[in-house]
Nucleic acid binder design. Sequence first.
RNA 1: CGGGACGUGGCGCAGCUUGGUAGCGCGCAUCGUUCGGGACGAUGAGGUCGCCGGUUCAAAUCCGGCCGUCCCGACCA
Length: 566
Amino acid sequence: MRWSQAFIPTLRDDPAGAEAISHKLLVRGGFIRQLMSGSYSLLPAGYRVRSKIRRIIEEEINAIGGQEFLMPVLHPGEIWQRSGRWEIDELFRLQDRRGVDHVLGLTHEEVFALIATELRSYKQLPQLWYHFQTKLRDEARPKSGLLRVREFVMKDSYSLDIDAAGQAKQFDAHHAAYTKIFDRMGLDTVAVEASSGAMGGTDSMEFMVASPAGEDFVAYSAECGYSANVERARSRIPDVANGDPLDAVEKFPTPGVRTIEALAGFDGGASAENQIKTLVYIADGEPVLALMRGDHPLQEQKLIDHLLASEIRPAHDDEIVELLGAHAGSLGAVGVETVKVIADPQLKGRVAMTTGANEDDFHYRGVDIDRDIAVSEWVDLREVSAGEGCPNCDGTLDVYKAIEVGHIFKLGTKYSEAFGANVLDENGKAQPIIMGSYGIGLGRAVAAVAEVYNDDKGLVWPVAVAPWEVVVTLVKTDEATLAAGERIYSELQAAGIDVLLDDRNERPGVKFNDAELVGFPFRVTLGPRGLADGVAEFVARADGDSFEIALDSVVGHVKGLVEAAR
RNA sequence: CGGGACGUGGCGCAGCUUGGUAGCGCGCAUCGUUCGGGACGAUGAGGUCGCCGGUUCAAAUCCGGCCGUCCCGACCA
């Protein structure tokens, strides 16, 4: 391709309102343009990057036995009702001219499970099916350019097995393949324990790339390598000494006290670690009380995961009053028997605690959890913080921001049961197929690479995903330079290198700056000065070091570097 | 969904408080001089000032409604 005819609309200014580096640079470099909120057009350079990422994924999934499909994006609403996912807020629903419900797929478990009903025998398993297809999600808040969008292409694969051992094998194969895929893209990922959310299933792991533009928080221990999304992370914290127990709870007035801090500062109150925080949630329409130590934050996802709820929310004030008889700020679980009470294990064995009395402006002191509160379930609900102890070693946890670039799930039989995807086992008995699902969003992967590989001049693509591997920059477009450029350009092409010839009639500074903004890994510069001596200039974008190289050696040198880095 | 901000040539912005001629930088076109790190001069093209309504002799500017976009939070398979 010659730059004079290529559509690479570079911009001097950052797009208005953009914050994320990848967003700014992908727009400025002429890779993407926004169509509407959460929807981007890929321009030729952007599409080239995405295609290279797609190719890497395809190779690695084929290598573990994947068979490529292509499923529709428009689905009958009925299958989403059958799987129980019809109510998901992010689901785009629409009706055809007859008024029949349809949905735009936000993943493809339903459709693949439906095809899997054609499997008859355990002898046909295992299967590994995948496709690259557009997903549509009505996101509450699209943001950061390509990082969080409403329409994107995802590689999603689905494993089908007769038993848990088979599934574990395919799960591990994906784990290894994903590690390779991200490594080839130049991304340094950590696989972390994750919540499976409304996807269902038992186990899931997310592949995380550390980045300030990320939306997830990962807790990790440098000493043992423990890594978990804070939605799931556990930690070790010191025990708190109990105060002196009382024979019975004692109600006392606390006028105007509505918060943990206020009660801690109240004469006759209690420090935060000696308080029980009572949170009221509505989970799929049912109220539930979550009890935490006063100074501990609740991690909502842990509550969702435990309840297997598809939707939870804090209760509204009127619901709280109706349920407990008091407003938030005076709530407690003492004597509560009609509502499910879930307590964080940090409260286990605690006595002499203070909590709300379910009467405005009154609290109880001397609460003994085991004696006074009917805890239905003890569940870890606490969100960890940096500096706490690692649950697996003597080390300390750090917490960092990360981009989720891949997610792998063990789904179990949720979808196969919903669709009757069974096979006969060796005893002739029908068994539901055990499924796994595995996803990588292509656009987010492009953005993640851009987040990691950039500097103050622009993008710095790794060779394996660069839109073009080399740019041949002509400092002048006089006849001799143009001829030399054309010659090197066609030789590079013949050598199988992705090369762009910058034959634009622009000043050198403009060309150099554009080349750096777009982020070509290598640049070969030709000008009358060097040509007189039979040399070109060679520079690698990553380190910026340049040197002169004989014209005859250019192609060999570039070829060697590119092939080593692909 | 809660909070905040913004919407004016292709891009980035000023103008709005105090109503009256639509402006700047970049980009674009033509010509000339230049040209190994975002050149200079001259000429020129390009704008329903997000939309609808109201106030007014007169609205980019004041008022109301709506739409759109971004940021923070909530949420997020």
